[in-house]
């Protein structure tokens, strides 16, 4: 019964298309073989088309995926370098059963992880930690360096944000705000411009971007609340490089 209706739909579509596309002759009507198409043929056509489309996408995916991963690793490496002040190399450690370890027993894919940076002399210089929480528009992802020995934040870099251009996105671009995270004590206290009292833990928030600034500070504080102790414990018991007698 539907086959009786569909050709009419086709014709009216042709006329509708003619209004948009004057060069197209409405009389040429629909496409394809006519009205005698069986359901099997309809389903079969779409199934074959779907399979071919899937194949094409898989081929492109296989080409693209390694490149995407290389790029992501590069972005991460640059960010770790930046927030730890240029370490010689870094190592990923995983949170397993409440403690950080460089050699986890389980599957690492679902584990929380941080990046320990090592200086030229082989000593650890700090830990880079990724964290994300909602900002003003959408989730803000940051990476920050942390020194468990002193409890200071070493640096901060925004990895991803959709904050308002010209206002909230200053959390990435405002060099004074970004620099304020180098060497600030934790937990960080956000203060408004001109209202600071000179404490080590103070970061002056950006005028016009208070919510985004506050979000960055909260993201770091919350993350340190959650895994700060585990990082300190790892730091105290970490394998020391040869020839070094603790720090």
């Amino acid at each position: 019964m539907s086959e009786r209706k569909l050709p009419m739909a086709g014709t009216s579509d042709g006329a509708g298309a003619g209004a948009v596309e004057p060069a197209g002759t409405a009389s040429s009507g629909g496409v394809g073989s006519g009205s005698d198409a069986s359901s099997v043929r309809l389903v079969g056509t779409l199934a074959v088309a779907g399979a071919l489309a899937g194949l094409a996408i898989v081929l492109v995916f296989q080409w693209a995926q390694p490149r995407i991963e290389i790029y992501q690793a590069k972005v991460l490496a640059e960010a770790v370098t930046e927030v730890l002040g240029g370490p010689e190399r870094y190592e990923t450690i995983f949170l397993e059963d409440g403690a950080f370890t460089a050699a986890p027993r389980g599957d690492t894919a679902s584990m929380d992880r941080v990046y320990v940076g090592y200086g030229a002399d082989g000593g650890a210089v700090g830990i880079a930690v990724a964290a994300a929480e909602p900002g003003f528009q959408d989730v803000i992802r940051v990476l920050f360096g942390y020194d468990p020995a002193t409890g200071n934040v070493l640096g901060m870099k925004v990895l991803e944000s959709k904050e308002t251009p010209g206002l909230g996105d200053k959390i990435e671009k405002d060099s004074v705000f970004v620099a304020a995270f180098s060497g600030v004590a934790s937990p960080i206290v956000g203060v408004k411009k001109g209202q600071g009292s000179g404490l080590d833990a103070e970061v002056v928030m950006i005028t016009g971007a208070t919510i985004s600034s506050r979000a960055v500070i909260d993201i770091i504080n919350h993350r340190l609340e959650a895994i700060g102790e585990a990082m300190t414990a790892y730091w105290a018991s970490r394998p020391l490089p040869e020839g070094e007698e603790g720090s």
Binding site: L6, G32, A56, Q65, I68
Partner: peptide, 28 residues
């Protein structure tokens, strides 16, 4: 080869394939 009863679905399938390819290529 596209039966006219399912032409819109077929067009969308073709378009979606190209969009996915464009998405992956741009990302890479």
């Amino acid at each position: 080869w596209i039966p006219k009863e399912v032409r819109i679905s077929a067009y969308i399938l073709i378009i979606a394939t190209f969009v996915t390819i464009a998405d992956l290529v741009l990302n890479a």
